[in-house]
């Protein structure tokens, strides 16, 4: 996904002279062709993220569209105030491409996990937070980043993620995609949990439950109307995210549900990382499993929610 994303930046730069690429201190050889062909628009500027974010704002204020790539933690947490003020307050067209959103860097330990990136960036007025589910969806997103007004955070997955998005469903920043219809349970995904949700829907079908899968590639602006339309039809709603359950997709769903004014409260659960620092290492898949963010966890959660519903009815 990262390679696809950066290749897209290269393609965008070829057709639009406003595009600038900035890296902090990323892998050797990254975008070599870009550097060779457009040296005055390729910058590798060192491990100085706070400065880089504000420098990008200065470029954007002067008509450029800068794309910055570094590790997600160091683009969101560390320079947060620079993102908030110089990206958000100035509403600049800066593009922050965060490598290793979630627990992609699980083997590297807790300092490199980006479990709160979407939550903190979501608090910035005017900030778009986008997490495509696979490389094909990334290809559909990137051309739209040129004209999107204001700052944007693009969360990258691990790479080599199975392709579950479908071209015929289209793509528009801020618009949810219904990957699958179903009337019993609504599964809401972002990023790579789209594949988890689709897998869960398969498990549910085997149990006689029809699950809809709604993919929220854009967590902000949150497509509240589309979400509530689907939620209104479902008996239970489950959000799935590779992120803390505080402040991200699950919170956006909870906020919308709480304010929706449904006659009966929806049965609702958030699957995501709990409010702890994971002190274990291992792969992305292992950490997701440890913290209960798998298809089988979604199935069990759905059964429990529907059970509690039938009990109360």
């Amino acid at each position: 996904m990262r390679k696809t994303c950066l290749d897209q930046v290269y393609l965008l730069a070829q057709k639009d002279p406003r595009v600038i690429f900035i890296g902090s201190d990323i892998g050797a050889g990254t975008l070599d062709a870009f550097k060779r062909e457009m040296p005055d628009r390729f910058y590798m500027e060192g491990v100085s993220e706070a400065h880089l974010i504000s420098m990008m704002a200065g470029l954007a204020m002067s008509g450029k569209i800068p794309y910055l790539n570094t590790i997600a933690t160091f683009i969101s947490r560390r320079p947060f105030e620079h993102v908030l003020l110089d990206g958000g307050l100035h509403h600049t067209k800066i593009r922050l491409i965060g490598s290793g959103g979630g627990v992609v860097y699980g083997p590297l330990g807790p300092t490199h996990l980006a479990l709160e990136d979407m939550a903190i960036l979501r608090t910035i007025p005017g900030m778009a937070v986008v997490a495509p589910c696979d490389a094909e969806e990334m290809k559909r997103l990137m051309p739209q980043t040129l004209e999107w007004d204001g700052p944007m955070y693009i969360r990258l997955g691990k790479g080599g993620d199975p392709v579950v998005s479908r071209a015929e469903l289209g793509f528009q920043i801020g618009k949810a995609i219904l990957l699958q219809e179903g009337r019993d349970v609504l599964l809401v995904s972002t990023g790579i949990t789209a594949q988890t949700a689709l897998e869960a829907a398969g498990l549910m079908a085997a149990e006689g439950l029809q699950a809809a899968v709604q993919h929220m590639h854009t967590v902000k602006p949150f497509d509240r109307n589309a979400f509530l339309e689907q939620a209104s039809r479902a008996s239970a709603v489950i959000s799935l995210e590779e992120h803390t359950v505080i402040g991200g997709l699950g919170s956006a769903c909870a906020e919308a549900l709480a304010e929706a004014g449904f006659d009966r409260p929806k049965r609702f659960a958030r699957l995501g990382f709990p409010d702890v620092f994971p002190h274990s290492y291992g792969s992305q898949a292992e950490l997701m499993e440890k913290y209960g963010i798998t298809a089988s966890d979604a199935l069990k959660t759905a059964q429990k929610l529907l059970e509690s519903k039938s009990r109360q009815l």
Partner: peptide
């Protein structure tokens, strides 16, 4: 040109502006 107040931002914004002028 830029909203300042939180220290350590304006100089970096100025660097971005000067870089844009250089590119163009």
């Amino acid at each position: 040109e830029a909203s300042t107040g939180s220290l350590g931002h304006g100089f970096s914004i100025a660097v971005g502006m000067a870089l844009a002028a250089k590119i163009d």
